[in-house]
Structures are given as structure tokens and as C-alpha cells.
Amino acid sequence: MSPTVLDIADLSSGYGEAIVLRNVSLSIRPGEIFALLGKNGMGKSTLLKTVLGFLPAKRGRIKLFGEDVTALPTHLIARKAIAYTPQEQTLFQDLTVEDNLRLGLRDDRGFAEGLARVSEYFPIVGKRLSQKAGTLSGGEQKMLIVSRALLGSPRLMMIDEISEGLQPSMIQRLTEILLAERKRTGTAIFVVEQNVPFAFSMADRYAVLKIGEIADDGVAGDELAAARVQDQLRV
């Protein structure tokens, strides 16, 4: 059996002295779509930032494809065939769309092939290559972020609140694309979301984060679970 894509064990993390995540454990298997849900400020982004090495783990360990990456610098973690789309500061605003896309690959090989592929998903991305990313609309910027992540055919995608501010039709389209891409490459997808219907429309399993701890987890796809999670996240 191939090793777990992402294996987080007993992880604690935070900013300075403040502890935001407490003893979180979760694992994602190859080809699996895993949804991490929770309200604002519950530690979702902190978890992703710790996995990527932006924040040091205070306790616990993180394994990617069976290898311990807990103390690795960010750029080496990011090179392990994973694609990370952060929630804020997602693009180089003053670089062109093309430059932003190129930065999704480690070198320029395979760019033309990848571009052709993502242009099929998002035709607009291929048409606006020389435009500055900062001048795209909010929705177009999201397409660019996802395109950049898909360009390198990653084995793990980590997507932080991509649905925020998107209209329902666009969210629907995104779900289809991510599912199609999983089918094509077998990538695992780690989605961090507040939007329960979106997350549940594609996730295999889920966990709910509440004040830095996992409050609930299970198999997605069941109406009852969705309702219960929605209840935990309600306004």
C-alpha cells in the first residue's frame, strides 16, 4: 500500500506564545479529498501554514508521502509535488498572469502543455496572459490561483477557503474541475473551508476544527453529517 499523503500527528502550533492549534492529528490517503471545516479564527489557516513550514510546530510531527517534513524549510516542503493556494496574498499582483503561472512550476519545462490543459478549464486564463494579475476581478484571480496549482499536476493540493466570495455557479464549476483533476492524476486534495455544501459536494472525509482542536470528524457524503457540521459552523 502506498504511504499516506499527509500524516499529521499530535500537532500544536501558534504565533509567538499564543497557541492556536492543540494536539491535532489527521491523515490524508492518496487520491482522497479531505475537508477541514471551521469558523474564522479556529486555526484552519494556521494548520496549513504549519504544514508548509511557515510556522514552526511547537509539538508533534508532519509527514508528507511518508517523509518527516516537520523541520524542513518552506521551499523544500513546497517542492514535494504539492500545490498550496493560500487564503490571502494569493498572487503576485504586479506580475503578469503568465509570470504568475510560471511560478507554479519549478522550471519552464512542461509549461506549454500545462497551460493548454488549464486553459481548457479556464479559457479566460489563457487569453489574459500578459495582463497584470492585480487587475483581474476577484473571480478571475481565483481561477488563476487554481490554474497555478493545477499546472504542475501535484500529488497533493492544499486549498485554503477558495470558495469565499465566489458565486454559486463558479463554485459548482470549481468542484467539477477539482474532481476531474483528481480522476486524471489521482491527486489528493486538502480543502479548508467554511462553506459546508461546497466541501461536502466533493470530500470523502472531513474534520471540524474548533478553537484549535478537532471537534468532530467522519466520512462525508451523508446528509446527517452535513447538517451536523453546518450546525457547528452556523452564525
Binding site: F54, T74, L76, P86, Q89, F92, D99, L103
Partner: peptide, 16 residues
């Protein structure tokens, strides 16, 4: 240029 504009994002994309 990526490092000048946004170093954390650049690192997150695997740039040393």
C-alpha cells in the same frame, strides 16, 4: 521579482 514582491508566497511556491 517574486521574492521582491511577496517573499512568503514565493517560498510557498517552492522558491529558495
Amino acid at each position: 521579482r517574486a521574492v521582491i514582491m511577496n517573499e512568503p508566497l514565493a517560498r510557498g511556491l517552492g522558491i529558495n
